[in-house]
Design a protein around this nucleic acid. Structure first.
Lengths: 195, 195
DNA sequence: TGGATAAGACACAATGCGTATCTTATATTT
DNA sequence: AAATATAAGATACGCATTGTGTCTTATCCA
């Protein structure tokens, strides 16, 4: 029996996969290192050596998955569709795909950790929020230069599009294109444009 | 030593208090029946007799605290301030006071359970959302009859004011009157009125 | 005052945690 | 290819928590 022992990246990958599978099956709250080790066909020691606690493992998975989706940064992937409405639809769809990939179970686990006062998350959050604000500024600037009438709004309002997607994923798990269009037409367009 | 053993309501109350204190201290995720029993100066048996699991206890606390705040239903406590803006400010302030009372730690624990697919929460949630929609309908109707120009929006958009408060409590823990005013002026007024 | 009721004390097997130690497979260096 | 370093896997420890069960005892109420 040679080459039956996984190492390095391969090992980590199968642990991630096992963890995600188990989060979906039993939920983050009931997740144990024991189960993960068993599912990944490795040993508990291996897990404890690499991650001090479940949350560290979770964050690694999130980082991994979100960078897979937003391979480049979000700001590099937005498009000028010719109208603010089109741009927003595109942006929300793109952003939603991140959450769909990460998965609502994992997302809610992260949110839970925020709620519990885990201070590693907020740092990452603030970074993400700052980038998202830049994205919105760019979108609105594009719209303005096309001649669309844009309201002046503060940074908090600029995070609204992202918070809508986040909230929907958290509460209802399913966000389809119809709902995204609704957000754009009934909420975002009135908020960001004069009519 | 007589009258040293708590019973009924008194007992439950001190258990609730102990639980809330511990949720704040160690977080819902790390909460144990053992700790609660100790903090409430009672026995573990007492807890297991009354609640099948931690979540049942949590929900009882939430019910208790939210009914303390919204003693009557929300719809009975809204006021006609003379403008939609004033009405919205009043509504959000009222709604925020619920969350402030319940506490962000407990809120995030509930949200966590939703994320984990706990199906007792969504039922309560759907009820609450339906009531909130009625509240918004009433507010908008009042505004309309005053002559304010109101947009036609769907139910999902009607839940926006409540979702904003919820999200803020979840993410940032502190929601002051300044932020509420910002929500009203930059988001809600543009969404619900024509200008 | 006596019986009903509920609180509290304690014991149990089972499970997970975090750590530590030892063995063994795989990779790297010489 | 052999020697060495590195990392994976197996196993065991004490401890905490769980859920259940049983017995005792305080408190309530008729």
């Amino acid at each position: 029996m040679k080459n039956t022992r996984k190492r390095g990246e391969t090992l980590v990958e199968s642990i991630h996969d096992a963890a995600v599978k188990l989060i979906r099956e039993v939920g983050y709250a009931n997740l144990t290192f024991q189960q993960i080790a068993k599912a990944a066909k490795t040993s508990r020691s291996v897990l404890y050596r690499r991650w001090a606690n479940m949350f560290d493992l979770l964050m690694e998975i999130v980082d991994d998955r979100s960078s897979n989706v937003l391979g480049g940064q979000l700001i590099d992937r937005i498009e000028d569709t010719g109208t603010l409405r089109g741009d927003l639809l595109h942006l929300l769809t793109l952003y939603q795909s991140t959450y769909a990939e990460i998965g609502p179970e994992i997302l809610s686990a992260v949110l839970f950790e925020i709620g519990q006062g885990n201070n590693k998350v907020p740092e990452a959050e603030v970074d993400a929020a700052a980038k998202n604000i830049l994205v919105m500024r760019k979108l609105l600037k594009n719209a303005k230069s096309r001649g669309e009438k844009i309201r002046r709004v503060g940074d908090i309002t600029l995070t609204l599009p992202f918070n809508l997607i986040r909230m929907e994923n958290l509460m209802y798990k399913k966000v389809d294109s119809k709902r995204i269009a609704l957000f754009v037409d009934e909420i975002l367009i009135p908020v960001f444009t004069m009519q």
